[in-house]
Write a protein that binds this DNA or RNA. Sequence first.
DNA 1: CGACGCGTTGATATGGCTCAAGAGTGGTGG
DNA 2: CCACCACTCTTGAGCCATATCAACGCGTCG
Lengths: 224, 224
Amino acid sequence: MYVTAPLPEHAAPETTPAKPSISRHRTMTLMPGTHLFLEGDPADRIYEVASGVLRLTRIMEDGRRQVIAFGYPGDTVGFPSDGLYHTDCDALVPSTLVVHRRDHLESAKGDPVLHQRLLKAALREISGMQDHFMMLGRKSSVEKLASFLRVLTTRVGEPLGDFDQVTLPMTRADIADFLGLTTETVSRTFTQLRKSRIIAIDHVNTVIILKPIALRAIAEGDDG
Amino acid sequence: MYVTAPLPEHAAPETTPAKPSISRHRTMTLMPGTHLFLEGDPADRIYEVASGVLRLTRIMEDGRRQVIAFGYPGDTVGFPSDGLYHTDCDALVPSTLVVHRRDHLESAKGDPVLHQRLLKAALREISGMQDHFMMLGRKSSVEKLASFLRVLTTRVGEPLGDFDQVTLPMTRADIADFLGLTTETVSRTFTQLRKSRIIAIDHVNTVIILKPIALRAIAEGDDG
DNA sequence: CGACGCGTTGATATGGCTCAAGAGTGGTGG
DNA sequence: CCACCACTCTTGAGCCATATCAACGCGTCG
């Protein structure tokens, strides 16, 4: 779900409307501001993002927030534990999802292919989360932002002339809560990368990677 | 960095005393200082901790380290992604492991019960990691240490008179690298909790929880 | 006994937070 | 089309929690 994951073999699936199908999945649309589920909800369903971007968050009583992951096309969200969801989930942009009934996926009787895919998705998720740990626990603010931009570029970047460009559907506050920073620090760090000509910024939420090598060096702490 | 000089070679698995078993798993012993696997190793096997404590770590080029998890009995380690391990794994104390061949677990042809258990374990892992995120990204040092002690107490605490006691097989450096702190800060925070009579410390690595309620309040940020 | 690894404590430095003020940006209604 | 408002983003100044640097005690092991 977080973004180190390799590209999914299954791109956007087609809706198979009324026709009875062995794998009984449907699709649905989720609009920004709408929650797919909340922490503590019974987890009946598991979702694959077909298009759009989701946001998975945890919130503490006093309001502190941690963005656990952004769900991009190909990602799976809604992994249950003890039958419950453990994050909130909503959409950053209008998103379409493939809905799977949990009991079909988890039980040994369900479709073994789907079952297999769920396991793969879970393992990818674990791997991605492990990267995120290093970032949260041990990296400086520039390193965090550089890593973030790199992962996003790899995953959803688009070529623009000689450069790669990436659109950020999330706010600075979302990025801050993902990286364990404040919005002010995220903003200052963007400025820092911009002033050193490593990135350029269009329209606040469009970033052009001018020096990918330098960005990687920073992300991995290879510099001073 | 390491407590004892780590042996470069991987531990040699021992065959279990031949006991006829339908599911072809074996057990093995892992001694402190020996690595079960390293980041980047091909992930053929998945392990269940039967006894002991494992340590899963990620290390950056410049030596910065993040402890991803401690593996206690009942935990599963070695979740692969793209066929590779994504952390290093070694033992903090002599540990016994149940070894599963990955191909038996992941393929649809394998034992469905084991398959089911692997998925459950992966889902539990994801849930636990989500807690860890909040801790790394958004909690203060006291909150981190209090959370850590609470989780450990719940998991492996032993009653001692009216109180719960927990043994810490890991060093302060391990705790620091798990919580995203320095050893000095961990040490000072232990002292702080000790001075406020919330915990007591025996033998450096044995903690007695004197005020579990207060500890929980701190862990969850319910105090000033 | 000395050396080494670990833990604690102290003094100082600093990266990122907090508080505060503007500057974009987008939406809405007149 | 503009005026206004709400919200997000940026920038600045000062502060604080934690890191860093350093010293020392303690236990273990050779």
